[in-house]
Structures are given as structure tokens and as C-alpha cells.
Lab assay of single mutants.
Amino acid sequence: MQIFVKGLTGKTTTLEVEPSDTIENVKAKIQDKTGLPPDQQRLIFAGKQLEDGRTLSDYNIQKESTLHIVWR
């Protein structure tokens, strides 16, 4: 499925993911596209910070959802 990651600059990155992907895995995909290391990424969805060990489905993140990224 496709999801979007929007940064503070307003730039949006598209990712191809599975609902079973962990947040850690998603951060690795973001690094592949942007070069930003996972330890500098904070992902937010529906006002919650996403924890590395959880999956996208744990947070009810579905296709075409938009996550927000904040740099540490």
C-alpha cells in the first residue's frame, strides 16, 4: 500500500509499505529516500508519536494515510 510522509518543509515523500511493517522498517525506507537516519526521525500520526516496535496496523494506518515527520 502507499502512504505519504510529510515533513516540516511541506515536502511529501511517498512510500510503498505493508500494514505489517514495523515503524522501524518504515524509518529505514524513509532513510533510503531522504538520507535522514532513523535515529533522527520522529513519526507522528493522529497526534501520536509512533514507536519503533509497533506496526502500521497497530496504529490503524491505512493506504494513503499521511504521517508527519519531525527531525530530532
Rank of each mutant, 00 (worst) to 15 (best):
M1P: 01
M1R: 02
Q2M: 14
Q2F: 11
Q2P: 07
Q2W: 15
Q2A: 06
I3M: 03
I3R: 00
I3F: 01
I3A: 01
F4R: 05
F4L: 06
F4E: 03
F4H: 10
F4N: 05
V5E: 01
V5I: 14
V5N: 01
K6A: 09
K6M: 15
K6R: 12
K6T: 14
G7V: 09
G7R: 06
G7I: 13
G7L: 14
L8R: 10
L8S: 12
L8E: 10
L8Q: 10
L8F: 14
T9K: 13
T9A: 13
T9W: 12
T9V: 09
G10T: 08
G10D: 10
T12H: 08
T12W: 10
T12D: 07
T13M: 13
T13G: 04
T13S: 09
T14W: 08
T14M: 12
T14E: 09
T14N: 07
T14I: 15
T14Y: 08
L15H: 03
V17E: 00
V17A: 04
V17D: 00
E18F: 12
E18R: 13
P19W: 06
P19Y: 07
P19D: 07
P19E: 06
S20Y: 10
S20Q: 09
D21W: 11
D21E: 12
T22F: 08
T22R: 07
T22N: 04
I23K: 00
I23Y: 01
I23S: 02
E24I: 10
E24H: 09
E24T: 08
E24M: 14
E24A: 13
N25Q: 11
N25V: 14
N25G: 10
V26E: 00
V26W: 00
K27L: 07
K27T: 02
K27V: 02
A28Q: 12
A28L: 15
A28G: 12
A28I: 13
A28D: 06
K29A: 07
K29F: 05
K29P: 00
K29M: 14
I30V: 05
I30P: 00
Q31G: 08
Q31M: 08
Q31E: 08
Q31N: 07
Q31A: 14
Q31R: 12
D32M: 12
D32Y: 13
D32K: 13
D32W: 11
D32T: 12
K33I: 13
K33D: 05
K33F: 11
T34F: 12
T34S: 06
T34W: 14
G35L: 04
G35R: 05
G35M: 04
G35A: 04
G35I: 02
L36A: 05
L36D: 03
P37N: 10
P37W: 10
P37I: 08
P37Y: 07
P38K: 14
P38E: 07
P38S: 13
P38H: 10
D39G: 10
D39F: 10
Q40H: 06
Q41R: 03
Q41A: 09
Q41F: 15
Q41W: 15
R42Y: 13
R42A: 11
R42I: 15
R42H: 13
L43G: 00
L43Y: 02
I44P: 00
I44N: 06
A46I: 06
G47T: 04
G47S: 05
G47P: 01
K48C: 05
K48H: 12
K48G: 05
K48Y: 10
K48A: 13
L50D: 00
L50E: 00
L50P: 01
L50G: 01
E51F: 06
E51S: 06
D52Q: 04
D52L: 05
D52F: 04
G53P: 06
R54T: 06
T55P: 05
T55M: 10
T55Y: 05
T55N: 05
T55V: 07
T55G: 02
L56I: 10
L56Q: 00
L56V: 08
L56C: 03
S57I: 08
S57P: 02
S57H: 09
S57V: 07
D58R: 02
Y59Q: 02
Y59S: 02
Y59F: 03
Y59I: 02
N60P: 03
N60T: 05
N60H: 11
I61Q: 00
I61D: 00
I61F: 03
I61T: 01
I61R: 00
I61Y: 01
I61G: 01
I61N: 00
I61S: 00
I61P: 01
Q62E: 13
Q62M: 11
Q62R: 10
Q62A: 10
Q62G: 13
K63I: 06
E64F: 13
E64H: 13
S65T: 10
S65A: 12
T66F: 07
T66K: 05
L67H: 01
L67A: 01
L67N: 01
H68Q: 12
H68M: 14
I69T: 03
I69H: 03
I69R: 02
I69F: 08
V70Y: 11
V70G: 07
V70N: 07
V70K: 08
V70D: 07
V70L: 12
V70Q: 09
W71V: 14
W71P: 11
R72I: 15
R72Q: 15
R72P: 15
R72W: 10
